[in-house]
Design a protein around this nucleic acid. Structure first.
Lengths: 348, 348
DNA sequence: TTGAAAGCGATACCAC
DNA sequence: GTGGTATCGCTTTCAA
């Protein structure tokens, strides 16, 4: 059996005609507004529902959105393509939480992919069109965040939330989900201090993003508070790790290092071993970043609750969509430390 | 500096007022229709563009969709949640291709997540609403495809394409992207025959999905055509692998086995080894499925070009959206065989 | 209780 | 060239 295709999708008007009522009656029954629906006699209601079924009527969501300014669509805009990197779990865990929570509360997700430039980066605005407008609100994430876009979105009053802290000139506090790097790096320094480490060092990436600033401030704050001593270049703002400093480190009083990345930690490890020192026997190391599957050691490291952050982002976004005044509130999410084999009490 | 939020998004009417022209003029300039835009004096055009910039006007996509019936949004509906399984590369590679191609041709993707039932399955229709309607068309995928949903979608004339062949009662041929299992299983049988295998066996999963039917037909077809002999239960429609048959296999004339899954192949391997026989020395094995990372052997197996299929799905979908008459055409995509270490010439 | 009618924002036809 | 205006499908007053 082959059913013939219908030429045109049925509208409320068609349903109304078939049921012998007015279009508004149909709207009231369909719309599900309990208030309005309740005032409709059981009989009329049934006739309408029957007509709906017979015609296979389904509401047109664009029309609804046009009227209601809302369509239960939440956007996800990543400043880089999602899936190629998803595996590496940078985006992946966030998306897991985002999808999970969106499903729970009955929203669909729009993945904004159309805005890709040739350089692989994605912008919100392209030839004057803000595609994000199809969705009620959007979760933004990515490392290559375009601040001009953020500022403009904020300026337009478009509901959005950014995963990761960003300071945007021209906008007040934009709503972000902020992993508590400040707090956790303080805790890490505290943990090292508790292990007896007095002389510590900091390895710094060559990145000036806000999340790194938070880590650096948290660390610096704790160093001062705990009376630790750090003479490392990284602590003074110099990125990277060179031989000169490795030499000093191998021969100096430092017994613990905090590294902004696994990459730096790995070269530190090689450098130290080449100089006859080891981790954690001589130097304890904590890494401020998730650890890949082929790390040479089980680094003690910072853990970002990405999935949880994804879920929180959706809730925060919905709150902003429902009440635009909520949009100035950023949310700080606690991080944790994953134990590894790279810390030990300070050698005396 | 803090910019104040705008209370209402600007419309074309606002732009028109500011530029001192009519709304239609604005539409013509904005809409980008080269035809209409060309007929507008450079001067007017400039004034309009200036007003647009000044107000930060962006077109309302819902209104456009309402008018144009198109909004450059393509849906992705999976009958199960995507991300939890994405890693296992079942959905993942498809999505990679889908995202990639959508980005290339300037479409955004709607991930339909709102339709989840409590059992983890997702349906298209929930309380009479077909959410898919927000998108111009939708790619459907998943193992737990709901055929009633497919039939209804087809009946409604909604543009969609299904990844994987599905036969739907009540609809003519629904548009699918069909991996050529029929052809490739034939090739596999041919390859075994070329290696001298005469007596072959087939291991069958307990699944009655169309893709499995295709594999089975392709295999059966080739067995007959090539004059091979298969007395296995799997070939006669009995799923699984039991000791009785393993005993027969270990002592019988069979020198090659085609297995529908890695799982069955692994138990076959264990069973054979327990009986003093090995792969491929005594028995060659080809697996009709992607192989996980922790397979005990590099199985020779069927490879589905998932990413490519994702890309093709998007192109096919766009074709259907552009021309609804294209929707009866399914597309067959060739598969390939990945060499492994599990086949060898038949022992004499 | 029910229906008529005014928009939501953008497009395109048809006069001027 | 330019500007009215009907229309897309739905929601929501406002009257009847």
């Amino acid at each position: 059996m082959t059913t013939q295709r219908r030429e045109r999708a049925p509208r409320q008007a068609d349903v109304a005609r078939l049921a012998g009522v007015s279009q508004s009656a149909v709207s009231r029954v369909i719309g599900g507004d309990p208030e309005a629906a309740a005032r409709i006699p059981e009989d009329t209601r049934r006739r309408i529902l029957e007509a709906v079924k017979e015609l296979g009527y389904v509401p047109n969501l664009s029309a609804r959105k046009l009227r209601n300014k809302t369509n239960r669509l939440l956007g996800v805009h990543t400043f880089e393509p999602v899936f190629p990197h998803a595996r590496e779990s940078f985006y992946f865990e966030f998306l897991l939480g985002i999808e999970e929570r969106a499903e729970e509360i009955g929203y669909d997700l729009v993945l904004f992919t159309s805005t890709g430039a040739s350089d692989g980066r994605r912008r919100v605005y392209r030839d004057g069109t803000n595609r994000l407008n199809v969705a009620d609100g959007t979760v933004l994430l990515g490392v290559a965040t375009d601040k001009a876009d953020l500022a403009r979105l904020w300026q337009e009053g478009y509901p959005f939330i950014h995963i990761g802290r960003r300071d945007v000139p021209g906008a007040a506090d934009i709503p972000c989900i902020v992993p508590d790097y400040f707090g956790i790096t303080g805790d890490i320094a505290g943990r090292l201090a508790a292990l007896g480490h007095q002389h510590v060092a900091y390895l710094r990436e060559d990145l000036e993003l806000e999340p790194y600033e938070d880590r650096r401030r948290g660390y610096a704050d704790a160093v001062e508070r705990l009376g630790l001593i750090d003479r490392s270049p990284g602590f003074r703002g110099v990125p990277g790790l060179d031989d000169a400093w490795l030499d000093q480190l191998a021969g100096g009083p430092e017994t613990a290092v905090v590294s902004e990345s696994e990459r730096l930690a790995e070269s530190l490890l090689r450098g130290l071993r080449a100089r006859g020192r080891d981790v954690p026997a001589d130097v304890s190391v904590v890494v401020l970043e998730g650890i890949g599957p082929d790390a040479s050691l089980r680094w003690e490291h910072l853990d970002i609750p990405r999935k949880e952050i994804g879920r929180i982002a959706i809730d925060a976004l919905v709150a902003i969509v429902d009440d635009p005044d909520a949009r100035n509130e950023s949310i700080v999410v606690p991080c944790s430390i994953v134990d590894g084999v790279t810390t030990a009490p300070a050698r005396p």
